[in-house]
Simulated scan of single mutants.
Amino acid sequence: MESWSIGKRWLVLGLAVALIYAMEPSPSPWLILFILLYLALDLTALLLHKTAYRNAIYGMMIVYCAGCAVYVNPEFVLLLPPNAYETARRVAPRIAVTVLLAIPLLFLEGPLSEIYMFIAAISLFDGMYLRHLLQRLNRQEEQLDQLRLDQEKLRKQLHGNREFIRASEYTYKLEERNRLSQELHDGIGHSMTGALIQMEAAKRVLPTDSAGAEKLLKNAIGISQESIEQIRQTLKNMKPPVEQLGFHRLRNTVEAFGSRSGLQTSVVHQGDLEKITPLFWKIIHDNVTEALTNTAKYGEATSVQVEVRVLGKWIQSVVTDNGRGQAKIVKGMGLLGMEERTAAVNGTVIADGTQGFKVTTLIPYVPSGK
């Protein structure tokens, strides 16, 4: 805005100087000095940071231009409109300035009055348009500040949610540990205590009653076997199913990749995930990780989708991005490694770069009952 205003004033100054040399037979020998003083005042106003000092300089420039128009060359009157409206944009009402700028028309004659009216009209329009732009700029800055505040609020809220999730996970772990401890104490602890009592009793009666001691030992052995089976069943119930563990790890990997790279990610599944063995999950996880790395390096994508499907005789894993793709697939170390891992279980990898980039892993499995 400031560069446009000073450029406009200097353009009018150049026009005034050209008119002086064109219309005056003998311009004043002090003309160059007056021009340099005007430029010095304009540059001084541009360099000052305090608004009050700048307004004072602009007021001095109006007085200076009026004095030069009266005592040096009347063409200096052309500088009054741009300087006056520049001051009006800061401190004075625009209507009052317009009325005051009409006064010189009482003393101007010929082409100079017409040029003066033209410059005054252009300066008025330019001032109104500049004011409109400044208002829009202020509104946009206010909106930007509000967006920053909203973003900071959302960031704090997200941070708070993450802390809440961490606290909830920790609380859940503590509750689960407490439940397991209580279950072992109430069930298995009591059973093992009973078995120990039976063995102690067998030890005492063994010298006098071998048949009774044998019976007590059998009871202790039975109680111990039941306790061991109870421990095995408890641990089995605690252990998550393979399909849940495999898909959970895969989703965490993809979501962590999205957080690091800034890409929008999604993970979906279809079919009976129980068909996917731990080995198959390992291959799917490694292939998906490699495909995501390639997307981040070369894909120039904004989103990536991971799909896991269990079909009739195949397990299918697909990684698709919306990047630039590649018409001719050049197999690097990453893609070759994916093919080797998948071939170890008689599977195959298909890469397609016609629309974005798509990597499909196909692993055969034998359906149950076949």
Rank of each mutant, 00 (worst) to 15 (best):
R94Y: 03
E114D: 09
L106E: 11
E114K: 06
Q143A: 14
L134F: 02
Q135P: 00
I95E: 15
V99D: 01
L108M: 12
F118V: 07
M128P: 00
I95L: 12
L106M: 12
A96G: 03
M128Y: 14
S113R: 14
V97T: 15
S113T: 10
L137V: 00
I95G: 03
S113K: 14
Q143W: 01
R94Q: 06
I115S: 11
L101R: 11
I122M: 14
F107P: 00
I103M: 07
E109R: 15
I122A: 13
L133N: 08
L130H: 13
L137T: 10
I115K: 08
L101A: 05
I95N: 01
L134H: 06
R136S: 03
I115Y: 14
E141W: 04
Q140I: 08
P111N: 06
L108Q: 12
I95V: 07
L106H: 01
E114A: 11
Q140N: 07
V99E: 06
E142F: 09
Y129C: 09
H132L: 11
L134A: 04
P104F: 04
L134R: 14
E142V: 09
I115F: 13
R136V: 10
L100S: 04
Q140L: 12
R139S: 12
A96I: 09
S123Y: 04
Y129N: 11
R136D: 04
L134C: 03
P104T: 04
